[in-house]
Nucleic acid binder design. Structure first.
Lengths: 229, 229
DNA sequence: GCGCGCAAAATCGTATACAGATTTGCATTA
DNA sequence: TAATGCAAATCTGTATACGATTTTGCGCGC
């Protein structure tokens, strides 16, 4: 998204992207020298970026043994979904109290504008983009920068699995209108200034996907360890 | 808390502690060379630790200009309190469903054991320790490692202000029985397996302190910029 | 007196080197 | 064959150095 010019940012973005899409396999040890060569840099800035990714939960670190990719376990993914519920339900409550009528009207207009795509969109990437976009807007309306920060981080870490889940959903049946309807329901509750209903709708919307996460993790392993689909 | 042996961990812990208690003044630029000398290390490991602290929200970073202490603004502190509400209310709900009767009995016993201290404790440090201990236990009972991680981070970042708030509370009047009662109320809701009530009690408990945060921030500035009290 | 610009000093960004720790692979032995 | 121990190779941890960038301070002109 944010394209930074400086070299250190370039490295950070690259590594973050690799970690997000599991270019490092779960649990795998990360070789600093190899990365340095691959990314045309020395180990020093690479290590700085890796340290940041540790703090962000993308990687783990063992003293004396180096950096490792985070494990990809069903439990960890469920935890992330639950954390999303925590953040987003509260964000919905706050947005209910703080968003201006104009803000909500604008969000409604945005939903209307992309509505056709919800059904048309063939690739999961576009679908996920729209879904994340909606949720990010809600959090923005909460006016709480910390919640926004936390949600961005959670989304980045769970994106790989969500993508797989979305693809499965797409294959299975047309659950897309469902998603669209869920978003609309949340917005309606916000417009009605009903914090409880908004939080409930948000909870239901996320929990619905959460239940399939374990299955998605299994598919994720298949994708990661089989050459190509 | 966790005493780490390796040198890099020593540096990380030291810097994290300094950042938490605002040994760097809000907004202040951080001089790497000076830190390196002060902590008996070279700039390389210092910078690695600083990068982690950036990712954890203790510091900010500007390309080409270096590291800075996070600003201490009322808005930022309110955001942190609201994030705590998000995390802890959801944790309470989850704990309601997942904690075993034994777990809850143990927590009740712990509350009983430290009850005398709630009134006796003269120093805010001890009081804050007990309060954080209770909240950490609740999150532990939620069984969600991610929520625990997030709460630890939020607590570390808001501790300085909470401490000042607690001291003010201590001076003002004996609101300590209130705090005690609030904890008891939360536990009761958990024991009754009433998720809604638990979340509500948690929300009220945190929000009560939240409202004083702005005032605490003002006092924090006074403490930071006046030699000693 | 007040900005403006330039040069000096300070500071950051990162490559590189090397010491120490860890892992690997092989040979030896029960 | 499986286990063990040792030595070589690999990799991490950190100091150091130096070019690039930013900040500072001073002198000049208005």
């Amino acid at each position: 998204m944010a394209k930074a010019e400086s070299n250190v940012d370039r490295l950070y973005d690259a590594l973050r992207g690799m970690a997000a899409e599991f270019a490092f396999k779960p649990g795998e040890r990360i070789n600093e020298s190899a990365l340095a060569q691959q990314l045309n840099a020395s180990r020093t800035p690479i290590r700085e970026a890796l340290n940041r990714l540790v703090a962000e939960g993308f990687l783990t670190f063992q003293s004396g043994r180096g950096f490792f990719c985070r494990p990809l376990s069903p439990e960890a993914v469920l935890d992330l979904y639950e954390a999303r519920v925590a953040i987003e339900c509260e964000a919905a409550r706050l947005a209910c109290a703080r968003a201006s009528d104009d803000d909500l009207a604008e969000l409604a207009a945005w939903l209307d504008r992309i509505a056709p795509d919800y059904v048309t969109a063939t690739d999961a990437v576009r679908l996920l983009e729209m879904d994340e976009g909606f949720h990010r807007r809600i959090v923005a309306l909460s006016g709480n920068g910390e919640l926004a920060r936390l949600l961005d981080n959670l989304n980045d870490r769970v994106r790989y699995v969500r993508m797989i889940d979305l693809r499965a959903m797409q294959r299975g049946n047309a659950a897309r209108p469902d998603m669209m309807a869920a978003h609309r329901r949340i917005l309606d509750a916000l417009t009605a200034r009903d914090a409880e209903a908004a939080a409930q709708a948000m909870r239901a919307h996320i929990a619905r996907r959460r239940d399939e996460a374990a299955q998605a993790v299994r598919e994720a392993y298949a994708q990661l360890y089989v050459p190509d689909l």
